[in-house]
Simulated scan of single mutants.
Amino acid sequence: MKFRRTTLLLALSTALVALTGSPASAAPILSSGFENPQLTVEFRSYSTGQQFDGWTVTSGAVDLTTDWQDAEGRQSLDLNSSSPGAIARTFPTQLLTTYKVTFALAGNSEGPPAVKSGRATVNGQEVDTFTFDVTGKSNANMGWVYRTFYFTNLLNGSAVLEFAGTSAQAWGAVIDDVHVESCLLILCPASASQVNRIS
C-alpha cells in the first residue's frame, strides 16, 4: 500500500511538472525592458494615447529614458514626465491560472520628493502600491529593487496590466524589466493569501 501511494504521488507530481514546466519555474507571458524604440537622445516623453514597446499611455505622460543606470538593457521608464502618467498592456489569461508579475523599481533622484510612489492595477483593480526613497541614490547608483505580486483572473480571458505614477512632481518612480509568468495556483505562489483575485 505504501508503494502504491508513493507511486500515485509521483505520478501526480510528474503531471504537475508537465503542466507547469517545473515547480520552480513558470511559463513566460510577457517580458518588457522598455528597449523599443531605441533612443538616440537622453529621454523621450509619451503622452496619453501614444504607444511604445507594446504599451499604451493611458493617462498623463511618461518618460522613456537612457539617463541613468538601468536594471537591465539601456532604457527604463519614469512614470512621471511633466505630470504623473500611466501605461497599460493587455495579454491573454486562462481560467484557474495564477500569474506572477515581477518588475524592477527605482526613482528619479533629480528632483523632489525624496519618496517616489506608484501603483499597479489589473483590470482596474489595485494589486500593488509601491514607494522608493531616492535618498543617497544617483543616476550612477539607482539602487534598483525587485517587486513581485500575483493575481488570478476569475472571469475574463484577458488582463490589462497598468503601472501608474502617483508622485505629484515631475520626477517619479522608475520601472524596468517587467515580467509576467503563469503557473498553477497550487504551485505559485506558496501562499494563497498572496494572490489578488480579479473579477
Results as ranks from 00 to 15, higher is better:
P113F: 01
F163Y: 11
E126N: 14
S83G: 00
E181V: 13
L64K: 11
G111F: 07
V122P: 06
G118Q: 08
E110H: 05
I87Y: 03
T48S: 10
Q75D: 10
L154T: 15
A114N: 12
L30G: 07
T135K: 11
A88C: 12
G60P: 03
F52S: 11
R197G: 00
D67G: 02
A114M: 06
G157A: 14
L79G: 08
W55C: 04
L105G: 04
L185W: 07
L39D: 05
P113K: 05
W144A: 02
T131H: 08
N108T: 05
T93E: 07
S83F: 03
S83W: 00
L155A: 12
T135D: 10
N156V: 09
E181W: 05
S45R: 12
K116L: 11
T66Q: 08
Q75M: 11
A61M: 10
A26S: 14
S45H: 04
Y46S: 09
L187M: 06
T93R: 06
P28T: 14
A106N: 02
G33I: 06
I198Q: 00
C183K: 12
W144H: 01
S45I: 15
T131N: 15
R74E: 11
T6A: 12
I29H: 00
S182V: 04
P113L: 03
F103C: 09
L30K: 03
I198R: 00
G157P: 11
V115H: 00
L16W: 02
A88K: 09
L12R: 02
W144K: 01
Q125W: 06
D133P: 09
F34Q: 00
V145E: 13
Q94M: 10
W171D: 06
T131V: 15
P92G: 02
L19V: 12
I198E: 04
A170N: 05
D63A: 11
S182R: 15
G107W: 05
G107T: 06
R197I: 05
S82E: 03
G111V: 04
T148V: 15
G165E: 01
Y146L: 02
D67Y: 07
D53P: 06
L96P: 00
L30C: 05
L161K: 05
F163V: 08
V180H: 06
N123P: 04
G165N: 02
A192S: 12
Y46F: 15
T40L: 03
K137R: 14
L10Y: 12
G172P: 07
V134K: 01
